[in-house]
Design a binder for these strands. Structure first.
Lengths: 196, 196, 196, 196
DNA sequence: GATGAATGAGTTTTCATTCAT
DNA sequence: TATGAATGAAAACTCATTCAT
């Protein structure tokens, strides 16, 4: 099933991991090349420059999140409660233990103020996340309030991811998930309880 | 009232503002020098290097926050509700409209993973914040739960500050304050309502 | 005969000559780059920094001396007297007229006290020299005394190299060679006499 | 008896010790100021610059050596053997255990090739030494040969001082003294024997 | 496509020196 | 005299990018 990974994909994956852990400026093209087994010059066969590559990484990440994290939230054939649980658990699974936390959040602070191309992508990512969460919460809370609740939940998750990196402890992040589930009156799942 | 600013303080203030807005790596010593009216080399009269200066800035910020943001929260002669309102409003006043948001949060994401000297200071700052908030919430919620609530509120505030920078909109951040006040059953103050 | 010089070797050769003539601190990376036809930044393609390069130069010099100056001294199929003459003449040929004298000796004085990485290499060089000389003298003088005589001869040669640079006169250095030959009862060779 | 030490003398003494141990380029004006309890700017009240100060240090050292090391060698009312012993012991006492070895020798290599003002002073120092030694040896060996012997002995002493710094062992240097005494048929003094 | 040598602009840092107080 | 803040030139080092092979 696994799609054949091209060299271009390998570059992006190395870049994504390095950007997330070391930051954009602190990651050199040489780091990226080494991270995917190419030599410095070769990276330029796939991307016209560092920024171009970073933007491709963000586009990729946006697509990936849409497919893996947010897609199911919009499937109205599934009960909202189930979709919320799926979404929260997907987000948890994605971020817990992921060194460096959330690339989008990190870049929001490192580059968001300085560069519109980055800021646009980062906003797109958070908008997607908000839309997914809002659509699930809308049935019970109405769209307007659901959007506010979604924004609040995402803000809290992002702050919690930061603290998870700082304290090497995922308790704050997990409580954020629990409270998000509670927005539809859901308790913690048995699986999550077992893990906790 | 304003204490006379030494030149060293002027360097630190320029550095603090630049670090917050442009990030650590993206701010050059030349930027800092220009920001306080010195030439590149002159900054080294006050600090042995960029990192040394950044750590002094963080130490300064920690002290400042203790005095201006967190100190009153521990004055038990004042009712907890008043102290909570004071704290939340101080935090709001500090961060709303402050370009670049929260230096500690930004550095946590840009450097926290990479450098223990920075990470220690950043943790100290957040611990101070947590302690201040927890002590106010402890009367009503008990210390254990108050600490968790404090962590959650700070995470949410940090995430909201990030989003405030990204969306140029402080609504998420203000709701975080409102919900924090609600932890002691407080409604929004007239002043805050007017601003909202 | 000449082995093809790699670019890395060209950098090292330029560095070696400059270090010997101008000293370590007084030689800039720009000097070295210019000395081998590169630009400043390009040198870092081959060496991670100035010290790294200098150590590589010393390692190179140690190897070179082993091969060109000291190797034959240990060939016991040749009479000790011939080996001594070969060694003394090789050393003379190496240092006479060589601007800057002996890189190892110079660095011993400029850096030896300050940096263990340099000091270790410099000691290795002088140990090699001592071993070569001692092994030749041992037959006649016994190992213990041969080692002392070797140390004394090397000390005198080093001091003489310094004075040769200071006075632009190689007489002191040449007498050091003559007296070393006399340790095995050898007179000066016709070639050396002609040169003197 | 001790002449009152002026600030100017204190600067020179600090500079001399630092130059000897760390070298000229590696010693900063700030180091020197700190070494004599002044502040950076104040040093310039006594010397117009670093080089000016260094030359004054060398002049001072030359005078000092004339008085303390070489003066007695020229007192023809004393037997040559006694004068030689005095000279050798004075030199030994001066250099053994003196961290950094011989300032003149060090600067000969660090600066002698590059700067005539330094080179002239360094040559003066070695000429004084040579004259002192030659005058003592002349009675027995004739002036011509005495001068050569003196040069050889000084070269050996300088090389031995370098090796003393490198190996932290004064054996080579002490043997140089013994062999110098032997030039007048002198054995090692009881005092020196006891120390050995 | 792949390589890696070379570039050159930019960054941090050092430090002898000047000068207003 | 003494200070120490400020300077400015030079040094070490980084790194995205180019390009001949």
């Amino acid at each position: 099933m696994a799609v054949k990974k091209t060299d271009r994909d390998a570059v992006m994956e190395a870049a994504m991991n390095l950007f997330r852990v070391k930051g954009y400026h602190h990651t050199s093209m040489a780091d990226i090349a080494e991270g995917c087994g190419l030599l410095k010059g070769s990276v330029y066969h796939y991307f016209s420059g560092k920024k171009d590559m970073a933007l491709a990484v963000l586009d990729n990440l946006i697509e990936d999140a849409r497919r893996k994290l947010f897609a199911e939230a919009k499937d109205t054939s599934v009960p909202a409660a189930d979709r919320l649980r799926t979404l929260v658990e997907a987000v948890e699974g994605y971020f817990v233990g992921r060194e460096g936390g959330c690339l989008m959040g990190n870049l929001a602070l490192e580059l968001g103020n300085a560069d519109a191309d980055f800021a646009n992508r980062i906003r797109t990512y958070f908008n997607d996340w908000k839309d997914a969460l809002a659509v699930v919460l809308a049935e019970e809370h109405g769209m307007k309030r659901a959007e506010a609740l979604a924004e609040d939940a995402i803000a809290r998750a992002q702050g919690a991811i930061m603290m998870m990196g700082l304290y090497r402890d995922d308790a704050v992040f997990r409580r954020a998930g629990v409270d998000t589930l509670a927005l539809l009156g859901l308790g913690t799942s048995p699986a999550a309880k077992a893990a906790a």
